[in-house]
Write a protein that binds this DNA or RNA. Structure first.
Lengths: 230, 230
DNA sequence: TCTTAACCGGACGACATCGTCCGTTGGACC
DNA sequence: GGTCCAACGGACGATGTCGTCCGGTTAAGA
């Protein structure tokens, strides 16, 4: 139990892991990303272990349960999303920043189908630092939207929750059609066009009460149950 | 074995079912729709049976496997979709027909979350009559799209596969957020606006090679594997 | 009312996955 | 090279679901 708190996420220093242990941990993460992308987020843990050339016990020693593994496997993707958000905010053209953020997030979803499914299902618990990161992401998103609206590029009736709607629906599409990147790009193009101010023809129905925290852009998401069996 | 071919779908005549058997079959179908909508398409068969006030054996006697049950449970919804397509084609205003078809299909997805999941996952086998129905649906859809484009309402670069993209992404959204009808309506509104001819600003990426047969509008779908475990 | 066959439902074996246990192996350090 | 202990991996029991079997029940017709 001395090892608790270290080693689950690899961002807290080496934690004095033995060389073979560290090597195996990395192989497990690579395997997990591949298996999750190929067979979905519910693929058996044993499959991940076998592909990594490792016993199940080794996997469970490093990641106490499936959620921990998912979390660690996609930590890098979270990082990419967070960076994309920062870059979007730094873009002098508000619309281009918004557009690139959406495109980057969707590209990530496209590349690893396990990624979106991971975030709509896998994060019931949150730590303080994650909550902070999430709050900052939410605030940044709001700023991005407001700026793009102020510039007259993003339609005025766009609601921040629409971003969640867009990303979740795109997530569903790439999950249903893992190999069809044309479909994904097509959807993104349609959505972005309909978000433009010029596309505002007629009123929209009222926005969702959906919080932005269910987005994969934040480091944590609301406690949704995974869409599993009864 | 005398009963083979009858009783699975209730549209081929009573097949001389005993009164209690017929009653139970109906209760099972009602229960299945409710359970699938509530717990997803992978809910245990025992849950369906219990809710119907019936033993598992009774369920399996009537529906030899999960797919048969799903198929029968949503036969009515297929019917509704087919009727919506016919009505859309009969509408004197091509755009309104198109619009209503999309809205009706999405409304069905919204009302029963099990419905979309059923169709992207559950129909590996097809019969001759289903293939015929599917072909007709495909042809009708194409006609609908062409007409709306000819009327100058639907954008010229709209591709029939975009309908599949729209419905599949919406399906993903309602699966991820089963209770959030505002999100669903919002997405539908955005998509429909972006399909209007006036919304065509700039070129779209190339369309998907996706066939329309994977749509729940047709009575059958392509043999996709369900997104299950490895 | 009586017969009979269709129907009912709970119990059951098969199967898959989860997460743990424990004897063995082999890095790290002297 | 030797020692120690962290790390290894396969076997294991627990759990949950599937689909079947079989003895009891009941609807339908004479």
């Amino acid at each position: 139990m001395r090892n608790s708190g270290g080693g689950i996420l690899s961002d807290r220093g080496p934690a004095r892991l033995r060389a073979d242990a560290r090597r195996n941990q990395e192989r497990i993460l690579v395997s997990a990303r591949a298996v999750f992308a190929e067979h979905g987020i519910d693929a058996p843990m044993a499959t991940v272990a076998r592909r990594a050339g490792v016993g199940v016990a080794t996997l469970y020693r490093r990641f106490p349960n499936r959620d921990a593994l998912v979390r660690a496997a996609f930590a890098q993707q979270i990082e990419t999303c967070a960076r994309a958000l920062t870059e979007a905010l730094a873009d002098p053209d508000p619309w281009r920043g918004f557009q690139r953020l959406v495109e980057t997030a969707c590209e990530l979803q496209r590349e690893e189908q396990g990624f979106p499914a991971a975030f709509v299902a896998a994060f019931p618990d949150s730590t303080v630092e994650h909550a902070q990161a999430r709050e900052r992401a939410e605030r940044d998103l709001l700023t991005l939207v407001r700026r793009a609206q102020a510039a007259g590029a993003l339609r005025a009736d766009f609601h921040p929750s629409d971003l969640a709607v867009a990303l979740l629906s795109h997530c569903g599409l790439v999950t249903a059609l893992p190999r069809d990147s044309a479909a994904s790009r097509r959807l993104v193009a349609y959505l972005l066009q309909s978000f433009r101010a010029e596309a505002a023809h007629g009123a929209l129905p009222p926005p969702s009460a959906l919080s932005l925290r269910s987005l994969p852009l934040a480091a944590d998401s609301s406690p949704r149950q995974r869409p599993s069996r009864a």
